[in-house]
Amino acid sequence: MTASEISFFILAVLSVAAALVVVFGKNIVHAALALVLTFCSVAGIYVLLDAEFLAAVQILLYVGGITILILFAIMLTSRISGGGVRILNEQVGVSLVVVGGLLLLIVSVLWNASFAGSAPPPVQTTPYIGRLLITTYLLPFEVASILLLAALIGALILARKEKE
């Protein structure tokens, strides 16, 4: 086993275990902290895939931004309670069947698929991504900025206390 295979295996096990804690964790704060671990291991897998820029974006935006936002929302809403409270609704059986079927489908399709081409030698990706974003993907880039502005204003209006 090479170093990259070993690190992939460790990161994969870590991310799946943390994802299971996110879904089945009794305490919602623990689930949010496990989410941080999942995001970090996915960022590690991005590094293995030679996508350093995306790994940095993942850490900055997901770990630094979204998780903090989620923790704030948890603190503002729920009374933090430990065990005793039911965390899953009564659809567990049906969901298990649906999700198991989906997973089986994904794995069986991937098992039989063969993809042409093998990995080319790694290149420095960050400058190319920057160039793509301001040339080929300029329009989606601007649309994304408008989407962010709209989401910002929408979130403000939704979260604001109504007068009177």
């Binding site: 567990v92 989906l102 994904i106």
Partner: peptide, 27 residues
């Protein structure tokens, strides 16, 4: 490549199970 895709599939299935069954909205 298959290992990455299967890992993605597993994570997607776990997330979908959570989205279908968690009672907590933030969950």
């Amino acid at each position: 490549l298959h290992s990455y895709l299967i890992l993605g599939g597993i994570l997607f299935a776990i997330g979908m199970f959570g989205a279908l069954t968690r009672r907590h909205a933030i969950g």
